[in-house]
Nucleic acid binder design. Structure first.
Lengths: 210, 210
DNA sequence: CCAGAAACCTGGACTGGGTACAAGTTCTTA
DNA sequence: TAAGAACTTGTACCCAGTCCAGGTTTCTGG
């Protein structure tokens, strides 16, 4: 209800002020590597770019690359540290008044907005190189653990089977939306897809399609 | 309706009679590699066994290993050619009288029975080495494409979004069952889990838990 | 039954992801 | 400003996966 609270925090303090030189350099390096990598990959395709290429083009050693990203794929799918912060804010939002599935839809839409920027590129990569994982599970993997924890926290009835089912189904719906979205369509359309898939999956797929 | 048809075919002809020497040797080699691999892996763990180990212990070259299995993981998750046949029979069963979701449940239960033998081992491996993919998606990957095709064939209304959603959600339910099953429990219990998860997911997760 | 074709197996060489480590460099902090 | 923590780098290594040339085995038709 109070509008002034949560979201302003991350914007209000510039971070660069509170971060030491070390941290600032690290963030900068992270972003340099990431953007260099995305540039190379979107140009040549995922498989045609080696980690060595990326490291070299970023002015950094192979070893350092792997100290920033746990794998080559991570450079495509990991979140910017600031986005991670926003994602955590999203999950920390204590509006427990909504029923689980609706709250879950809200969170998913928020997540979708976080992904907005990189999603078109990712979709293009999916199409180019199917090795980049069937469907868009990679994208979800980055959020999965947090989200599952969030669900189980809200899920007071304590049945872990049901919790897991809710989680897996929500991911399935979200993946479906990613899968079905055409990057040439508007982003609004993607949000609608997310909403629709979650509504459908939540309402029950056993009924004949409405 | 006619009970005499489909399933007896694969048992009636012993295959070894109709297969040439070449094919028989191939099947034999496949099985030798597979069982050798499973023995080694269940003993030492997935990561502690290299493809070279497996090939060597199977009396075959590394190159040959990769001509039978597209990846190291495949040796754990791929189906025996005969099982593949049974899986295809399952999907070919022309009982289109049931509504989609119920037919899907039937297929899933049949699939579960096909997996019965190796499932306990696979679950143990999941626990040992989380790198072997979070959740049990690998298991599903082997069936995914076929299943999706089956769904879209039955799904006459022709909305690809809905088809994908049904498919992803069914997989989610199936994975959940695999994930939740304790290999010390009876296999019957696993079947129940599969049924429950599909029923729940099909009936709609947005409602408060029944 | 046999010769040629086709399928199969093999060792070896190569690419590229990922890890371990020791030595050097840069920032922090007291 | 000096000690120490954190970061970077090159090197060496392991292993999955691919490619290929040459040798064997099975199959086929005559």
């Amino acid at each position: 209800m109070t509008r002034a609270g949560t979201s302003s925090l991350s914007e209000r303090c510039p971070l660069s002020a509170v971060m030491g030189l070390r941290e600032r350099k690290k963030l900068e390096a992270w972003r340099t590597i990431r953007s260099t990598a995305l540039a190379l990959i979107s140009e040549r395709g995922f498989d045609a770019v080696s980690v060595e290429d990326i490291a070299g083009a970023s002015g950094v050693s192979r070893t350092t690359f792997f100290s920033y990203f746990p794998s080559k794929e991570a450079v495509v799918f990991d979140l910017d540290p600031l986005e991670v912060q926003r994602w955590r804010d999203l999950l920390a939002d204590p509006r427990s008044d909504l029923p689980l599935w609706e709250a879950l839809t809200d969170v998913s839409l928020g997540l979708a907005r976080l992904l907005a920027e990189r999603l078109p590129l990712q979709k293009r990569l999916f199409e180019q190189s199917p090795e980049l994982c069937t469907s868009s599970r990679n994208t979800c993997d980055a959020f999965g653990p947090d989200l599952k924890e969030w669900i189980s926290r809200r899920h007071t009835d304590g049945d872990p089977l049901h919790t897991t089912l809710v989680y897996n189904t929500a991911l399935a719906a979200f993946s479906t939306a990613i899968e079905a979205w055409d990057p040439d369509d508007s982003f609004e359309h993607f949000l609608e897809l997310v909403r629709d898939c979650l509504r459908w999956a939540g309402a029950g797929l056993a009924h004949p399609v409405s």
